[in-house]
Design a protein around this nucleic acid. Sequence first.
DNA 1: GAACGGACAGCAAGGGGTTGCCATCAGGTT
DNA 2: AACCTGATGGCAACCCCTTGCTGTCCGTTC
Lengths: 329, 329
Amino acid sequence: MPRPTIYDVAAAAGVATSTVSRAFSSPNRVNARTREHIFAVAADLGYRPNPHARALLSGRHHTVAMVVSDITNPHYFELIRGAELRAKASEYTLVLVNAEESPRVEYDQIQRLVPSVDGFVLGASRLPDENLVQIAGQRPVVLMSRELPGLPSVVLEHTQGCHQIVEHLASLGHRHLIYLAGPRNSWMAATRWSALRTAAEELGLRAERIGPFTPKASHGAAAADSAIRAGATAIVAHNDLLAIGVMRRLKQRSVQVPQEVSVVGFDNIFAADLCTPGLTTLGGAHADVGRVAIEILLQATGPQQPTGTSPQVALPTELVMRESTGPCA
Amino acid sequence: MPRPTIYDVAAAAGVATSTVSRAFSSPNRVNARTREHIFAVAADLGYRPNPHARALLSGRHHTVAMVVSDITNPHYFELIRGAELRAKASEYTLVLVNAEESPRVEYDQIQRLVPSVDGFVLGASRLPDENLVQIAGQRPVVLMSRELPGLPSVVLEHTQGCHQIVEHLASLGHRHLIYLAGPRNSWMAATRWSALRTAAEELGLRAERIGPFTPKASHGAAAADSAIRAGATAIVAHNDLLAIGVMRRLKQRSVQVPQEVSVVGFDNIFAADLCTPGLTTLGGAHADVGRVAIEILLQATGPQQPTGTSPQVALPTELVMRESTGPCA
DNA sequence: GAACGGACAGCAAGGGGTTGCCATCAGGTT
DNA sequence: AACCTGATGGCAACCCCTTGCTGTCCGTTC
């Protein structure tokens, strides 16, 4: 017993297939009584429209893809969760793709999915601008943790946030901070560094950048060693994972945090609250980033013509102070 | 300029559409020279087959869905990662669905996806057996962290693992353990309890179960209070999140871990290594669970007839000892 | 040299819906 | 009574690709 089709429903209800189709896709084009009758018959038969047949003609798949630069980063869990929830609320299917920090993989996967999805949400895309523009020409795209003029995006307000970090460090007496940079092709890394440097200048601190580092805990050891060698009293790591890796290494080398060195991270992942000492970090409502990104995307894939506007949303950040930062030695 | 179709390719190459189609889907049905020519023209035009049209007829979508009971649980990240990687390796698309701990949501989402995916991987499904059997009748299904005769599954070897836990506790002099149970409809919770109880009996410990508890850190406080009231010297929590929540509460109540109470978790999530004291927990290669599950699923969705066998894979566990367990007071 | 068989390409019928256009009909106008 | 209008439902083409069947061509075989 294969799935019933509109033909079965039409036959059972004694109407034409087009009427059945319309009853589902544009209910007000069909008389209320007929419609109810069709619905009843359909429910009886257990009919469900075949999304592929529908997509074939309409070109709309009720599916969006979320591409993340590295799925192993816990920071994304929140984004994914927010996105999944929002997509589900609109009965959209969420396809998840891991770019494994490789622009190549990212691009290939996106191209593979172009025919099957209505749009893309890209998390911290490592692709060059021109690729993003090209993809945006094929399907609606919303960027997360990245901005590009002309494309909609959702980010956390990092300029502001970085300023808070530097202020926090300055008020603790630090005169010199070291930023452990993220991947070379990370927009976020560039933005953070630029914001940190500006804020540092403004507040009379010396800012230095080391890196790039792969933002994983395992790469924290090398980062920590470099930072110590550079004579850091305050380390701002590209993200919490790196910061946690740094702190581990510092403990190993018997460098006291925060007495000798202060450490700050980004993202406020679950683990930041659990490590010892607790990690001071710049957090924010990451689930909202995912949620809003999907929301904008659904707007863009909607039936109404694209408005031409590309909202660039910046959600507030919050400096979560824990024990990894303290007065400068 | 819409995407080129086989018609465009056929016209440009001077052959029939069917020949183009066959050149792609069954290359040896077409002369090598013709084929090469078609490929050249197709590449030139930037042709890519439309997966929906293909799926419409063939019924194969090159897509599998992964449904997890609660996406916010870090334990799943590994599963998801392993699954995503494996799916990508076979050029399958992975759809991610969060059941939010609700059997209702789980079932509805699955039914919604039935027409669009080739199969399901269900992580810690909360559905009753009969639902699973029914779904398995519609599409191939592979269970993770759950077993059901007749359905393929991938789990960690928990019986063995639980035995290790109890042995560990027994060797530390504990005579009484309390299991903080997971959700009522969790197969895993039932299995762990049964394994713990058996092992406890064997080793002469008294085992007691409290719960069920929602396995999140935020529910650890209540669990901790119950456990203390029951006079626990050793607590085995349903998962690491709950264990971490318990330890937080114990610290709050100035109950020393492990001096007064030992705590053990399950899953060995990233945070287990970071909390203080480090959490003793039963780990395993979770990414492999996801990987193997997808592998079995792809096997089952493959062209060859289902073999009728339903592999029940059990991957080894590993008791990771940290500082949260110690000699009984 | 006729009959035969294999390799290959094309025709056309779907697969499950959507939708532009037309036919019908009831109700309202003048 | 003739005419118009809007609401409603049906016909059939179309979306893009797959595949069973047919026809052609050419090399074999007896």
